[in-house]
């Protein structure tokens, strides 16, 4: 048998590859952006601009923390119960995700963290993301006032892994026997592992799929805001509580994901949306929706209700892009 048909098949194969490469690697980088116009009748007109079809969603909400910069804590010289490579992977991913959501962010070490938290005048304009499982002694040593004062002055902490304050890290190691910031029983003990069952409206809107509430906050805490899924034991896989004028948001679970890492990736992308939106204690979802646009731009109008901010995102399963718009005061 002559191989002419095989050559033809090879040519078709190559044509599909070239078309696919153009679509994903050239057209994919043509980007997506949005314009928002507030109308006098209490509606908001949204235009999603992008050459190719896209899934999108929107959330109208109140209670956004006012920070405009996020510090990603990572210090290889300070001890941690969490592997440095796991922390690094997470922070690198979060940096990428936050960049794609237009959020200004930078890495900070234990010394830098002390500097930032000492500046209580700017506390409300900065958020900190920590996944070290330990607070460095530069802010939570024998004198815990730096950390507490920063929170009380309006700082926002996004925390993953461990009981906040129980482990204090020092240069070259960790010291057990710290003072848990939120007290006994405020966070879910890892031995008490239970599956989440109740879904909060925020989790639905955010597509927050992390069911692991280990170290998650108790829903009984005063001023608790549920952003995730709640276990039978009454702990949330993502929740926020107020601390003075500031806020603490705790994300449940560990840093490692399944082999494909989809659970972890989905959680981290949703967390990036949480941070980009500035969600904290007291944040309330007013309304949300999804849609899909075809080729070119699409425009739709939504009623803002009493919302103070609008968040637009794009993607299919996970959100791949997002942007927050602060709406003018009514």
């Amino acid at each position: 048998m002559k191989a002419d048909k095989a050559v033809a098949l090879l040519a078709v194969f190559c044509a599909v590859m070239v078309a696919g490469a153009l679509l994903t690697d050239w057209a994919g980088h043509m980007g997506l952006n949005a314009d928002v116009t507030e109308n006098d009748d209490g509606t908001v007109q949204v235009t999603m601009n992008g050459t190719f079809p896209a899934g999108y969603g929107w959330m109208l909400y109140t209670g956004s923390a006012g920070f405009n910069h996020v510090c990603l804590y990572l210090d290889y010289e300070y001890g941690s119960p969490v592997g440095y490579s796991d922390q690094e992977d997470l922070m690198d991913s979060m940096k990428k995700y936050l960049d794609s959501r237009g959020v200004s962010c930078s890495y900070v070490d234990a010394g830098g963290l002390a500097e930032i938290m000492s500046d209580t005048g700017s506390a409300s304009s900065t958020a900190v993301l920590m996944a070290s499982g330990a607070l460095p002694d530069t802010v939570y040593g024998e004198d815990m006032s730096v950390f507490k004062t920063w929170l009380e002055a309006g700082g926002t902490l996004y925390w993953m892994y461990g009981f906040i304050g129980e482990t204090v890290s020092v240069r070259g190691g960790t010291a057990e026997g710290g003072t848990p910031l939120l007290g006994e029983g405020a966070q879910l003990d890892p031995d008490e592992e239970t599956f989440a069952s109740d879904i909060s409206p925020w989790a639905e809107a955010l597509r927050y799929r992390n069911t692991d509430a280990t170290y998650g906050l108790s829903t009984d805490l005063p001023g608790f805001t549920d952003l995730g899924l709640v276990t039978e034991s009454g702990h949330s896989s993502c929740g926020a509580v107020p601390y003075g004028s500031g806020s603490i948001v705790v994300v449940g679970g560990s840093l490692d994901g399944s082999e494909l890492g989809q659970t972890a990736v989905g959680r981290n992308l949703a967390l990036a949306d949480v941070i980009a939106m500035g969600l904290a204690s007291g944040s309330e979802l007013v309304d949300s929706g999804t849609g899909s646009k075809g080729y070119g731009s699409t425009t739709f109008t939504i009623s803002r209700g009493g919302a103070e901010a609008l968040y637009l995102w794009s993607g299919d399963y996970n959100s791949e892009w997002g942007q927050r718009f602060t709406l003018r005061s009514v």
Binding site: M17, G28, G31, G50, A54, S314, D316, Y317, N318, W321
Partner: peptide, 22 residues
């Protein structure tokens, strides 16, 4: 998920959902 690669300005391996060769 990867059908959305041409959406939102992300390439094949920036979508976080694709683990195979191109």
């Amino acid at each position: 998920f990867i059908a959305g690669t041409e959406e939102g300005g992300t390439g094949l391996y920036e979508t976080t959902s694709y683990h195979y060769t191109p």
